[in-house]
Amino acid sequence: MAAGSTNGHRRPPRTVPWLAATALMVVATLGAACSGQSGRGTGDGDVVVMAASSLTDVVEIVFEHRESVTPVIAASSTLVAQLAAGAEADVLITANGATMDRAVFEGSVRGEPVLIATNTLVLATPADNPGGVTGLSDLSRKDLLVGLCAVEVPCGQLAGRALDEAGIAPSADTLEPSVRALASKLSLGELDAGLVYATDARAAELATVHAPELEDHLNGYYIASVSAEPRPEVQAVIDDFTKLGSSGAKALYAYGFLGSDRRPVWPAPS
């Protein structure tokens, strides 16, 4: 494969190809420079909605009949990083105030964030609870395979606070980059216990173990338009979540999210 012979090797004329390569680089660099500003929408009647991964099912239901909507699902922190890097989107929905704050601070989001729901963490196990988990303190048991969200994503930050306050040092075996990845490993039975959102435990049909220490720890879901003056079709998508009795509000309720009137742990973005 790599054993080529060097017989008859002669260099091709040099200038033209180098010019081509340089021209390509210049064009590409200019292109990158022009599209570098953030805070743009997509246009053309299409609406790109970036949503936290814990909203996967809700987003699917709400936009089932809106074909012009393209959902992008990832961890809130990933979405905010993508926006900062110039990803095109019209609406951002994050799973806590801190990530929305960051998007506002970085100038990726120009619209006013609105709190649409809250969620709480639960102690979840596979349906048959193979590790015999009975309470939050079992997360420090070395003989169990314990999973948490990575501290970089909202569910990991919330879990860290809750465990800190409860004085429990978890013996984690993996720090998953999204709550969905953690929930699916629990439902596959590869992990014995983990802290996921109540709604994800429900969606993945996990068993939950009573853990009163978690009840006071809520995270807030915020929606905001990327542009300061959203197009009508973008505003319609936001209304889907913010208006009383909207399809979004109904879906959030159906999947077990809490109402926005409960005060979230994270301060609302100013």
């Binding site: 091709p12 033209v16 190809p17 180098w18 081509a20 390569a21 390509l24 680089m25 590409a28």
Partner: peptide, 13 residues
């Protein structure tokens, strides 16, 4: 040769 160098640019860029 041309396209080859464009490909190289794609890798290097």
């Amino acid at each position: 040769t041309w396209v080859g160098f464009v490909a190289l640019g794609l890798l290097v860029l």
